[in-house]
């Protein structure tokens, strides 16, 4: 690959000198991979760049600082906590956000797309937002007030949710220390930066799983999603309002048509099933005999049971 060896110093065969930092190497690599036409390959390259750059780079850097030195589990964990603190909360949240992909229709992607409109509405209505609604435009004012209040609610819920995600990443450092301590015995020591990275991933997953399975997460996640749905409904209502002004069909109208078709098809299927001549069925006795015979040929069977309602 022309140029790659120059960038990477000793990375390419025959080259000399120290390798460049991983993040720089990934950035260079991703730039070079831009020319790949295949959409699937391009997506993978993007995800790799987004997910394999920052944290692996940081882990390599920390490993380099610890090389040839005696450091105990607590010291390593402490140093890693400093790295994470140095990256800031946004880097952790960006990691989670990065799961959603660039062309995503996910929760955050929707909000990113909708936020400029919401902010514009907020600016336009700033003067009368907190005022009691009255006069000719009172219903319009009430709708906008509700919409913008929904945005505030969503931001609050999102913030609470993000706080929990950050807590998981903070808790991971404690788990990291515990897992590292298991490698202190000779023969179990970690001999590569990659192995150290893998231990941190294990720790991060353990800490995250504990929170993601908690009642608190269930509540906070549910509230965050529900709040965005309320906000979306308000936005959709405004868009439908605009559509109706210009005589355009709305999603509600299209949905109503789709519902009618689905119900008609269901009704027809039920009627056809009720009137269709049934082929000769296997007699219940023959079926029972066949199944009894099959049951005796199996190694592991359950105890006999009867249906709840039979």
């Amino acid at each position: 690959m022309p140029g790659m060896g120059g960038m990477m110093g000793g990375a390419m065969p025959g080259m000399t000198g120290a390798p460049a930092g991983w993040r720089e190497a990934m950035a260079f690599w991703n730039n070079a991979a831009m020319g790949i036409q295949d959409h699937g390959v391009r997506n993978v390259a993007d995800r790799m760049n987004a997910q394999a750059s920052t944290w692996w780079s940081e882990m390599q850097r920390m490993a380099a600082q610890l090389a040839s030195r005696n450091a105990d589990a607590a010291g390593i964990a402490k140093q890693w906590r400093q790295v994470m603190d140095g990256q800031g909360n946004q880097a952790v949240l960006d990691m989670f956000k990065g799961l959603q992909g660039a062309e995503s229709h996910s929760l955050e992607a929707w909000y990113d797309a909708a936020r400029p409109w919401l902010d514009a509405w907020r600016r336009e209505t700033h003067g009368w937002l907190g005022m009691p609604a009255f006069g000719l435009a009172r219903e319009h004012q009430e709708r906008i007030q509700t919409l913008l209040q929904s945005q505030v609610d969503y931001q609050d819920r999102l913030s609470t949710y993000n706080t929990l995600l950050l807590k998981a990443s903070q808790d991971a450092v404690g788990v990291f220390e515990t897992l590292l301590a298991k490698h202190e015995e000779p023969g179990k020591q970690l001999t590569t930066a990659r192995a150290l990275f893998d231990v941190w991933v294990d720790a991060a997953e353990q800490a995250y799983a504990k929170i993601a399975l908690s009642d608190e997460f269930r509540h906070v996640y549910g509230e965050m999603v529900n709040a965005q749905m309320r906000l979306r409904q308000q936005v959709q209502r405004e868009i439908e309002q605009m559509c109706s002004v210009f005589g355009l069909p709305t999603r509600t109208e299209l949905d109503a048509a789709h519902r009618k078709i689905a119900e008609l098809e269901r009704m027809l299927r039920r009627q056809a099933a009720a009137t269709k001549p049934k082929p000769a069925a296997e007699s219940p006795v023959a079926r029972k005999q066949a199944r009894k015979k099959a049951a005796t040929s199996t190694a592991r069977t359950t105890d006999g049971k009867r249906p709840r309602s039979r």
Binding site: A67, D72, Q189
Partner: peptide
């Protein structure tokens, strides 16, 4: 402690990964 690698070994590891890149 839990780590047992030298700076040279890390450079080697990094070069290996960058070669793969």
């Amino acid at each position: 402690g839990p780590l047992n690698f030298t700076a040279e070994a890390l450079v080697e590891e990094t070069i290996g990964m960058q070669s793969k890149l």
